[in-house]
Each structure stands twice: as structure tokens, then as C-alpha cells.
Design a protein around this nucleic acid. Structure first.
Lengths: 92, 92, 92, 92
DNA sequence: CCCTGAGGCTTCGTAC
DNA sequence: GTACGAAGCCTCAGGG
């Protein structure tokens, strides 16, 4: 019985993992749907969806580039012993 | 202010679209992260992540198959209703 | 002539690749044409093209389903071979 | 009996149509495969497949543009009563 | 580093 | 004939 208890705990754990992932994937799919809806609405308002996608893509790349810049800057600062404290960050 | 007119409205609309999509994509990425975390935790508890993925995939495939069966049935119904008899053809 | 050397060989190779693909794409387009012709001829003989397409689609879907069933079965087998029993887990 | 004969002829005809299309679609799929193989081989020889695809795409677009040019030219010629005979074409 | 699988683009078929 | 929707193809990102 102790072993069954053990296994049922393991089974519950497994079940929990699977269901959590499946739940999250559903949410993800729901959001993908929402995005689709936004584009559909935009299309209805006369926007060109392909171009919209490209704009968003470009903004994303720019954001990433900025992050890379920031990261590079941090690397330089670190190399030069210039790592700012959070207080210093606050002052910006 | 009144002179801002149509263009600013259009700009606001565009801005709204882009930001809504970006917000949704962030949420989506966040959820992808959560899924990753669940797998990482499972791995920490001794589960084989690859196998977990396969189990979840199998459950999904089964569900999809059921949907496809339904769809196939609909298509058959549609096709059966659409195929004219040759006698009907002859009457033309 | 010997002096043409590597680059001309590479150029020839590249040229060969591109032309082979282009040739194959032409063939593919030709076949798409042939299919169109068959449907046109069928239409001339009084067949409803839409229905013909649907019939062909149904046959294809059925065939694919059979393949998918086989694939699903393989996947299950694979998964079953990979899922450790909890006792095995305990031995670690 | 005559009617049966008639229907069986019709059935044969239908069967012929369906099978011809299916055969052609198989050929088409086969060629798609061949194309894939060419790219795979190219990749094995160190070519970047993505770039190859783009080159081929560009050549195709150029070809289309040339066709459009030719077509436009023909239109002008026709408008001006300058449609060349085949003999004139031969002389080019 | 390859490979699978998800996402986006294109084209074709359909309905209005 | 035009605009919508679906299907197949291509691309790219994430995991093994």
C-alpha cells in the first residue's frame, strides 16, 4: 500500500506536469488567436496586414539591437570598472 | 488641437494596433517561458523531458485526429449532396 | 584555359544547380497545366469540376489518414519504450 | 442493359479522369522531391540554400518582367499596326 | 550543428 | 471580377 501511495503521488505529479503544460499551451494558442483577431480588425480598417507585420518585426529587431547595445555597453563598463550602482541608474 | 485631424487619428489607430500586437506577443513569449519552467522543474524531479514532450504530443495528436475524422465526415456529406446522377446530367 | 581554375568550376557548379532547379520547376508548372487541362476536358464532358476536386481530395485525405495512423502507432511504440517505470526511477 | 452500358462508360470516364489527375499530382510531388534533393546536394557542397532560393526567385522575377516588357511591346506594336510576321521574327 | 515543428507568405479556389 | 478563405511551400527559431 505504501508503494501504491508512492506511485499515486508520482502519478499525480506527472498528471500535474502534463496538465499544467497543456493549460499553458491552450493559453498560448488563445493569445495567437487574439493576435490574429487584431490583424483581422486592422485589415477591416483598411490596413495592409503584411506591412503591419513587417513594421512590428522591424521594431522588434530594433529593440533587440538596443538590448545588444546596452549589453555591449555594460560589458565595456565592467571591463573599465565603471559598473554603475542602481542609485546611479536612478539618477538618469 | 482640432487641426490635428484625420492623420493623428489614423496614427493613433496604427499605434494602437501595433502596441496591442506587441503586448500580446510579449504575453505569448511569457507563457512559452512558463512552459519551459515547468519542464525544467519536472527535470529537477527526475522526469525525462523528451518523454514528457512526447506524451503531451501524443495526447494532442489524438485530439486532432478526432477533429479530422469529424471534418472528413462533413466533407463526405457535402460531396454526397453535390454529386449529380448521370440521369440528371442527361436531362440538360 | 588551365588558369580558369577553381572559380570557374564553382561557377559551373552554381550554374548547374540553378538550372537544374529551374528546369524542374518548369516541369512542375507543366504538370500543373496538364492537371488543369484534364479538368477542362472533364468539364467539357459535363462533369462538375468542383465535385471532381472534392472526390480526389477525399481519396487523398483517406490515404493520408491511413499513413498518419501508422505514424501515430510508431510514435506510441517509441514513447512506450522510453517511459521509465517508477521503480526504475527509484533505483537511481 | 443499354443503360448499364452507358453508365459503365461514364464510370470508366470518371475513373479515368480521377486517376489521370492523381497520377499527375504524384508526378508533381515527385518533382518537388527532386528539387528538394538538388538543394540538399547543394547544401552538402557548401552552398547556402536560402541564398540559392533567392537567386532563383530573382531570376524568375526578371524573366517575368521581361515577358511583361515583351507583352507591352507587342501591345504597342499592335496599336501601331506593326505586328511582325513570323518570317520577320526569324530574321532577328 | 542538424532537425523538427511552429509561423508567415503565396497562390489557388470559391462565393458574392 | 473582386475579395475572402483555405492549402501548400518556405522560413526561421528552439531543442536534441
Amino acid at each position: 500500500m505504501a508503494r501504491m501511495g508512492h506511485n499515486s503521488i508520482a502519478a499525480d505529479q506527472l498528471r500535474s506536469i502534463v496538465e499544467r503544460v497543456e493549460r499553458l499551451e491552450e493559453e498560448k494558442a488563445g493569445i495567437a488567436c487574439d493576435i490574429k483577431d487584431v490583424f483581422a480588425e486592422a485589415k477591416g480598417n483598411g490596413y495592409d496586414v503584411k506591412t503591419l507585420r513587417m513594421v512590428i518585426r522591424l521594431r522588434k529587431i530594433s529593440a533587440n539591437d538596443r538590448e545588444e547595445q546596452d549589453h555591449l555597453l555594460d560589458t565595456y563598463k565592467q571591463a573599465l570598472g565603471m559598473i554603475p550602482t542602481f542609485d546611479e541608474e536612478e539618477e538618469k
